[in-house]
């Protein structure tokens, strides 16, 4: 589904990603871990098409098509979803209106007319239940006055509504208390299928107790320096990052 080849990207002259290679097949859950400043969020931003970052070389094939040729909204239409680490406020626009706009645009691309209000509402209700969300939430303005946990839950709610092929969860666990974490993880697990894939970007192993990854990758200094199964996450939790990063630093000359 997703194949990243030798991706190099950065801001202005500073190269942050220094040659990322990653393959994700449908049905798989990948965790990308790494210390702060390793390039985790940059990777998710570049996949989603944030123009703050400049791509210097490489490709990001998604179902055979290079995402780098597409605008961010076109990538979304292909089925790429990013759960933001810092969700953005859009004052005056209710959650329901925002989601309606997103779904309308998606349907337009598919040649479908707008969804009926009734259909949309019942689908929203269903997904709200999945995430134990309170009534009245739909008419609140997008992320305005939301607590950290509410913002993250709102991200997963949008993911549930948009049904992406590839979901990238960027530090979704940060700002969540243990109960909220469980609810969010539970939601993500229920949305998993054989047809979609998930990339979890996280600093801690905590979330991976609830969403069990098939593969774990360690990102450091813009490169994936180690990959393994779910047990790698536990190892990192126990021993920290030093033992893997040290090895890599020697190899790449830091």
């Amino acid at each position: 589904m997703l194949k990243i080849n030798d991706l190099k990207a950065g801001i202005e002259d500073v190269e942050i990603l220094k040659g990322i290679n990653l393959s994700v097949n449908k049905g798989e859950v990948h965790a990308i871990m790494g210390p702060n400043g390793s390039g985790k969020s940059t990777l998710s931003a570049v996949i989603a098409g944030n123009e703050t970052y400049e791509v210097n070389s490489g490709s990001i094939l998604f179902d055979g098509e290079d995402l780098l040729d597409l605008d961010p909204d076109q990538r979304a239409h292909k089925g790429v979803f990013l759960s933001f680490q810092y969700p953005v406020e859009i004052p005056g626009i209710s959650v329901s209106n925002f989601i309606k706009a997103a779904i309308t645009e998606k349907r337009k691309v598919l040649g479908l007319g707008p969804i009926s209000a009734k259909e949309l509402l019942s689908s929203m209700k269903e997904k709200m239940e999945l995430l134990s969300m309170k009534k009245g939430y739909l008419s609140r303005n997008m992320n305005e006055g939301f607590s950290g946990g509410e913002k993250k839950r709102n991200e997963i709610f949008q993911m549930a509504m948009l049904e992406p092929k590839l979901a990238i969860l960027d530090e979704t666990d940060s700002g969540l208390d243990i109960d909220a974490l469980r609810i969010v993880a539970n939601g993500v697990n229920k949305l998993k299928s054989k047809e979609n894939a998930t990339i979890i970007i996280t600093h801690y192993q905590r979330l991976l107790d609830y969403i069990v990854p098939d593969f774990v990758h360690v990102l450091h200094n813009g490169r994936i320096i180690k990959s393994g199964g779910k047990e790698l996450a536990h190892e990192l939790e126990e021993k920290g990052y030093d033992w893997v990063t040290k090895e890599a630093d020697e190899k790449w000359g830091y």
Binding site: N50, P72, D73, A76, F81, A101, A102, L162
Partner: peptide, 12 residues
Amino acid sequence: DQIFYCNQRGIG
């Protein structure tokens, strides 16, 4: 950031 957020949700 607001525009990118919308873009990411498929809103041009």
